[in-house]
Amino acid sequence: MHWFKYALALLSLVGFWFAGLLLSQFIALPASLLGLLLLLLALMWLKQIPSALLRVSQFVLGHMLVLFVPATMGILLFGEKLAGNLWWLVLTIIISTVISLGITAWIAQRHWQNHEPADIPIEDHDD
């Protein structure tokens, strides 16, 4: 009956997304974000993560990249618009990223100089 549990977990993700979609008619936030926050509230109420939901979400989050391939392909339509300023755009991303990375890490180190934060659970997912 494992597949049934996993199907249910997957359906619950769709259900929470749908609830977020309904809620987004009243609150000016993206539907998925509202669905995410609703699921977070549900987990806080449950005080634990159902094991099937954990497995399903690890799989989904691990392979999420494929879901934004169609959107990313849209970049091919913007080639001409961006071409003129491409180097400036690339440089802006590199410089802003490098500076914020440095400042954030430096501030974090100063901020925690006296008391280091306690170890936290390990959670691995990539996109």
Binding site: W17, S57, Q58, V60, A71
Partner: peptide, 10 residues
């Protein structure tokens, strides 16, 4: 992608 984003709650 919508339902998958919801999974970030975990």
């Amino acid at each position: 992608l919508g339902p998958a984003t919801v999974a970030l709650a975990i």
